[in-house]
């Protein structure tokens, strides 16, 4: 892609992001469900499982510091899935035909959707972090916060490509539960509730191989200890790998729509 084509694509991406933001600013309360769910889960899981931190081998002093990355990722994953649901609605209602009939390149259209998910993920992320700090979550430091932010935005983008893949496949909002359940399952089948050595049964095996475990540990590092490149790069590699995979599927799905 040449520099000129990139600069030509930016206004399109900006316009599509702007349209996506309309929903947040023009529909009263539209942002609330996306914020409420991860916040409730964060507070709820902390209150319920808080004493798990007393178990030998637990790496955090406080369970809220350990569990907050899960809620951050949950918020990002739901935001990404919601992008897929909105896309399915646009396909159902015919809006997406307007984009397909335009000369804008397909990857640029997808980029607009994905980037808007990344930005929107900052809303639940910010709320959960504020609530977390208010109830005693360890301050992750600016570097820890930066790593967490990058990972959360990346996860939202990845979840958006997953949602888009399903939206292009099913072309209906009825696929929403699949989009949401898929992301939730992916986030929770990691070291979400406890460190790997403390997980039991099937989850220990799945979490070992689930690439999102690496992402979660990268987000978590600042909240439970020091930030290191060794704990960051596996998460980045995992995230980029999944993102590339679903971007390929989403673009293929978009091409198939007009085939």
């Amino acid at each position: 892609m040449s520099a000129s084509s990139i600069s030509a694509s930016l206004p399109v991406i900006r316009s599509l992001v702007g349209r996506s933001m309309n929903e947040l600013f023009r529909v009263p309360g539209a942002a609330i469900p996306g914020v409420l769910a991860p916040t409730i889960f964060f507070l709820g899981l902390t209150a319920v499982f808080g004493n798990l931190a007393l178990l030998p081998g637990f790496e955090a002093d406080k369970y809220q510091s350990f569990i907050i990355p899960v809620s951050l990722m949950q918020g990002a994953a739901f935001t990404g899935a919601a992008t897929g649901v909105n896309l399915a609605r646009d396909i159902e209602q015919g809006w997406f035909d307007r984009l397909l009939a335009s000369p804008a390149p397909r990857p640029v259209i997808l980029a607009g959707l994905v980037y808007s998910a990344s930005l929107r993920a900052l809303i639940p992320g910010s709320v959960v972090i504020c609530v977390g700090l208010a109830i005693g979550v360890r301050w992750p430091g600016f570097l820890g916060l930066l790593v967490a932010t990058v990972m959360i935005m990346g996860l939202a983008a990845t979840a958006a490509t997953w949602g888009a893949t399903l939206a292009f496949k099913f072309k209906t909002q009825s696929a929403a539960p699949l989009m949401q359940a898929g992301t939730l399952l992916a986030v929770l089948t990691t070291t979400a509730y406890a460190p790997l050595p403390l997980l039991t049964g099937w989850l220990k095996v799945v979490a070992t191989y689930n690439p999102l475990t690496q992402v979660l540990e990268a987000v978590r590092q600042g909240f439970v200890g020091d930030v290191s490149w060794a704990d960051t790069w596996p998460g980045l590699v995992a995230l980029i790998g999944i993102w590339v995979f679903f971007t390929f599927l989403a673009l293929r799905g978009m091409r198939k729509m007009t085939a």
């Binding site: 499982f49 178990l55 359940a181 089948t189 509730y193 406890a194 403390l198 997980l199 989850l203």
Partner: peptide, 15 residues
């Protein structure tokens, strides 16, 4: 799903 994950994820709580 939540039952399966919480049982395996927080299973050591019984200790």
């Amino acid at each position: 799903i939540l039952l399966a994950i919480q049982t395996a994820g927080a299973g050591r709580a019984v200790d």
